[in-house]
Amino acid sequence: MTGAWKKSETYRAIRAALYDSNPISKQILGICSSLAVTVKLSTAIVMSLALTFVVAFSNLVISSMRNQIPRNIRIIVEVAVIATLVIMADEFLKAFLYDVSKQLSVFVGLIITNCIVMGRAETFAMSNPPGKSFVDGLANGIGYGSILCAVAFFRELLGSGKLLGFQVIPDSFYAAGYQNMGLMLLAPGAFIMIGLFTWLENTLLGD
């Protein structure tokens, strides 16, 4: 990486989204609607991709219209743009990734109320040029996705001994008395996982 790149606005935007204020632990935003799909890694990945698509493009669209959007209806305009993108993502999933979309059920739709998407549109895209907003959206989507996938990774690994549907805990472990942790498959597992992640992060990074 060159020094110029490190100083660039884009780099700072990416760094802010991925590291300094990574959505779940620091912003507490966007935690809604995401945890229910973390029982399996595959659904979490697809969910992250769908959210990244929505947040990047809603940022792009809203930012390129930002000088035209009348102030008094801007929230409803943002919601309309986001909802359109979410429905498109949902329709595409149903057409091309039917199995995953069946498992994601209503949770793709709930991206509409995801605070990250609205938050980025309102705070970033409304006051920044399209290119930068698009990158900001991408980075935020990836930041969110990284935590979602990390939670899913541990839930699937500990809960069913598999990753992406393939068994990774060898049979000899089970023969020796190892058992899958059923708690991880249930809702409390996700809450506790997030709590432990925050603990780890706070301890490692300090405050």
Partner: peptide, 20 residues
């Protein structure tokens, strides 16, 4: 603005829904 936005959004959605 609101009218044009609604028109564009609904056209996109209808295209996506019927096309897929």
């Amino acid at each position: 603005f609101a009218f044009v936005l609604c028109l564009v959004c609904s056209l996109l959605l209808t295209a996506a829904a019927t096309g897929l």
